[in-house]
Design a protein around this nucleic acid. Sequence first.
DNA 1: CGAACATTTGACGGGCTTCAAAAGTCGTGG
DNA 2: CCACGACTTTTGAAGCCCGTCAAATGTTCG
Lengths: 229, 229
Amino acid sequence: MSLTCNKCNSTCCFATLPLFSHLDNQELDKVGSIICHKSIKKGQPLFEEGTLLDCLYIVNQGSMKVLTLTKEGREQILYLLLQGDFIGDQQLFKETIATTRAVALEDTHLCFIHKEDFHKLLQDYPLIQGKILGYAYERIHGLEQLVDTLTTKDIETRIATLLKSFIDTSSNTSNTITLPLNKEEMANYIGVTRETLSRKLSSLQKQGIIKLKGNRRVTILDLEALEDL
Amino acid sequence: MSLTCNKCNSTCCFATLPLFSHLDNQELDKVGSIICHKSIKKGQPLFEEGTLLDCLYIVNQGSMKVLTLTKEGREQILYLLLQGDFIGDQQLFKETIATTRAVALEDTHLCFIHKEDFHKLLQDYPLIQGKILGYAYERIHGLEQLVDTLTTKDIETRIATLLKSFIDTSSNTSNTITLPLNKEEMANYIGVTRETLSRKLSSLQKQGIIKLKGNRRVTILDLEALEDL
DNA sequence: CGAACATTTGACGGGCTTCAAAAGTCGTGG
DNA sequence: CCACGACTTTTGAAGCCCGTCAAATGTTCG
């Protein structure tokens, strides 16, 4: 059996997604028959506040940011979606409109499943609901950590937490990170202005804790000091 | 069939809990055979950071706060648990230790179900998993709103949001609210010091928007103005 | 190479935190 | 019912840190 996607004709693009990792080839084939595809250019929105969502979107390649606009007009990033992450799951169970906006951080390829198709899939493979639940708890944990970060008064500590999360995310062994966000977006993630972030990063560099290279690279020189913040 | 709880011998105390609202009397009786009870005095913890949880706790009477300690040592409240809310659900599906602390806001009576018993229950009544999932999404939404509040620079706006959430929670028709938290806890919820909260509440009172009575009562005099903040 | 974009740096002002002390509230027991 | 004490809340003054606005510098990519 060839696990090919009937939409993109490539080797099954969704077989590697954690959401379906417990399914065998035959079952995956069934998923392949209902899955759809969509590509989004960097900077383009997948959905915005007020959109009525009726699909589950899974990031297959690329990355996205999910954000709300604060009352002051600043972007507050809530989630970073990397490969295998999904969004729109809440709307599958509850008829609600989006209160957030999702924007592609780079050219991104998504798989998506229509609400009705997904419910059929759920009937056939009820274990998927458990995966969704597990994912919901991960999101809760991530939000709790975000609240923790946002209520930390010391800004350098907030930055340290963010950088450490990037170390964990990027699975490279070297201690140089390629940032998934630009500086303004990083500032918008930890709730400060880009100017403050810039000043604090410079300060961390002067302290010999990190080294900045270009706009998107950071080398961790002193992980201990970063942890201690 | 008498729906009595085999632990407290009162009329079935958990039948009114939303988690079990779809079950009929016979099914509820089954729940009654596995449910346990616990009472906590005001100010006492149900669990603390590092506790290995193996029960689902449901608030039957009273209320609790769930919090984390910030790096500066301040309490950051994450959730308010009122009647029918539960906690510990995450640990039912994943072996993790608590990263938060739960403390009773008043003398509180809890129902709880051991992990193994709950999994048996889930096998017999799989619809309960859907309820848990719906509850998880409510919690996500609540946390997203909390992030929204915490990133709002204008403190009076944060207070307005908090007061409005108390209006919605307390189902009384009058516009006087009895606060579920004291002032320091309210400050810890919206991420400011109690001094700042106090000053801002005084300011709102001077503006004729609210009226403070004693330590735990607030009358909303001008809801429109509160909404507009 | 050059233009658009991203980042850094500087100066200033305001608002929150901190520390300290006073005033108010609540519950208990006499 | 009142009085006392513990606790909570309010108010004041000072200082610091971040946000804002503006300009300069750096980076990236066609």
